[in-house]
Structure formats: structure tokens, C-alpha cells
Amino acid sequence: METLESLRTLYCQPFLSLLTQARGVHVANHPDDEIQRCQLVNIKGGGCSENCGYCAQSARYATGLNVHKLLEPVALRQAVEEARAHGATRLCLGAAWRGLKEGDKQLEAVCRLVEAIREEGLEICVTLGLLDPGAARRLREAGVMIYNHNLNTGPKFYERITTTHTFADRVKTLRAAQEAGLRLCSGGILGLGESVEDRLEMLLTLCKLDPAPESVPLNLLVPIPGTPLASQTPVDPFDLVRLISVTRILLPYSRIRLAAGRRSLSPEAQALCFLAGANSLFIGEHLLTTPNASFHVDQSLFSTLGIEVSSSAARGNV
């Protein structure tokens, strides 16, 4: 059983030693040149009642975000075609609200969207906030395969980024999703003002889930004007690579996804991330509310590194 002390020792060893160890774990469990591509679609933007200090979609902050209602099926099918054309194997649908309960009209509306695209050949992941067990089961019945709900940081620091729900609420949602038969996608955000210990405590929590998350997104905070965290200092890329390395060693079979903030990384920094064990990323020029690297920039990087989308990635296997 891993402990915070053992993770701290692992994290703080010389950088090249940690990177070498992580690389060995990665190549033992994953194809060396495989990168999973995921496309993120904001199916309902803005107006969220929660007060997460990093989020442009909170109704509590003046961020200038355009609020939009739930996407129509025609627009979602267009997003599916775009995702497939760009090599994505997973479609991630996100909606800004506190969460869903069994019987909610919003839950049924989302399920109708999922049912409209579930035969399109892409894995369907959704991120819809807090869930009760009944809502999780309904999403599974509709065709959702994966539920994304990031822990974001460690339990001790969590109340400093939001007070409208708790860290325990997040863990409860993950367990409800698992019990409904959904695979998990859960990770964190670096750059909220947290300590290294907070990041490692987040990883410890993920390790205690059974099974461990299939995917672990690691986001870099993109400071949004108007939010409480608008003036945060950028994360050192070496800190990101260290955390990816520790994550790869702890969760050898999970995909580690480069998510928000990737556009701020140089090609060399991204190459180090892949070397450490990152093997998934979001494609497309926009995520939920933040910009992302362009398709052509990504293609150039993949070409330079000799990265291809393998057949196992196309099937969404881990």
C-alpha cells in the first residue's frame, strides 16, 4: 500500500532517475508510439451555480463567457464528424451545472443526445458534475461508457478552491459511476496554489478506487480573468513531468491525458510528458472554455516524434 511518505520519496528523487523509472513502467504496459486522441464538446455552457475558483463557467464570476443551452442533436452529430475526421476515438461531452439526479429533465435530455450518437463508433465520455446512483445507471443505459469527474486536488486543499460542494462529494460521485458500470476518468489541475503534497494526496485517492481510473487527465490551470485564480503563477513544466512520472508508476495501466493548458507547453516539454508516460490528449482548437493546440500543430509534433494512432487506440483499449 502506497503512503504519502513513499510518494514524496518517489517524487523527490533525481529527475532523470524518476523519468527512467516511469519510462520503464510505460513501455512494459503500453505501445511505445500510441497516443489516444479525444475531442471535448461543450454541450451546455456557463451559468453553473458552483463557485469553483478556476472555472469560467461559474455564474458567480464575470468572465464574459457566452451562456448557451443544451446542444441540439444536429450540432452534436457535426461534432462527431469533426472528431472522427481528426482521428479522435473518444468524444467527451461536458455540461456546466452542479450535477444530475435520477428523474431530472436535464438528465433525460443528455441521454437523448447520447442515444443519438451511440452507434457512431466513438467511445462516449460525459462530465456532468455530481451524480446520484440512479443518474449514473441511466447514463450507462443510454450508452455512456466513461464518466469524467476530476478530483482536481487533494482533500486538504479542496475547500480553498470551492465551498459549494466537498471533496467527499466528488469521491461519492466516482463510486456511484463505478457501481453503475461506468469506467472512470479522473485527475487534477496543477497551478491552483496547491502544494506537491496536495497533488500526491490526490493521486493516493485515485489509487484507492477499485478499479483505478481508466484515464487520468492532468490539466494546467489556464487563468481566466474574472475568476479568483486569475493571477496564479504558471506551473513549471518539470513539475508536470514529475507528476506524470509518479502517476505512471502508480497507475501503470491507466491512460494519462494532457488536457487544459497544453498549448502553453513547448514541443520539447510535451515530448518529455510523452516520455514520462502521457499517452492521451485532447485535440481540437477549443476545450470547454479554453484554447487548445491546433490540429496542424499537433500533427507536426506527432510527425516529429514518430507518433501514430494505433489500432488499439482506435478501439479505445487501455
Rank of each mutant, 00 (worst) to 15 (best):
L93S: 02
D132F: 07
G46P: 06
T89E: 11
R137C: 14
L76I: 03
K69I: 01
K101V: 13
R90S: 03
C125D: 07
A116N: 11
L93P: 00
A142D: 02
V80C: 11
E159I: 08
C92M: 04
L122M: 10
R90V: 03
H149D: 10
I117Y: 06
L100N: 12
E119Y: 06
T173F: 08
R140C: 03
E82I: 09
E50K: 02
E81Y: 05
C48N: 07
G53C: 06
G87I: 09
A116F: 05
R160H: 13
N148C: 08
M145F: 00
Q57V: 06
Q78K: 11
Y158K: 08
C125Y: 06
V67T: 15
Y158D: 04
L91T: 01
G87P: 12
C125M: 10
H68N: 14
E82T: 11
V67Y: 12
V144M: 06
A75I: 00
L122Q: 07
C48P: 08
G46K: 01
G134V: 09
E123G: 07
A75D: 14
K101T: 15
T89C: 12
E81D: 12
H165P: 10
H149T: 07
N152P: 05
L113T: 04
E119P: 01
G87E: 09
V144L: 04
A95D: 05
D169G: 11
R175K: 15
K172Y: 12
L100I: 10
L139I: 09
R175T: 14
G99E: 11
R112V: 07
L113Y: 03
T164D: 08
R84A: 12
T162K: 08
G46L: 08
C52A: 05
A116V: 05
L131R: 07
D169H: 14
C92A: 12
A136G: 10
G94T: 13
G53S: 11
A85L: 10
L130P: 07
V80I: 12
Y147V: 00
A109N: 14
T63G: 00
L93A: 00
G103C: 06
L71M: 15
E108M: 14
V80R: 01
A136V: 10
K105P: 07
T164P: 13
A75Q: 13
R138W: 06
V171K: 06
A59I: 04
L122E: 06
L100E: 05
V110H: 04
T127C: 15
G99Y: 11
L76S: 06
R138S: 12
R118C: 11
F157H: 12
H86S: 11
A96Q: 04
V171G: 02
A135F: 09
L139Q: 09
V114W: 02
N150F: 07
E108F: 13
R175C: 13
M145D: 10
S58I: 06
E119V: 04
E119C: 09
S49W: 03
Q106K: 13
L122G: 06
I146P: 00
L65Y: 02
S58F: 03
S58P: 10
L76M: 08
Y54N: 05
G64S: 05
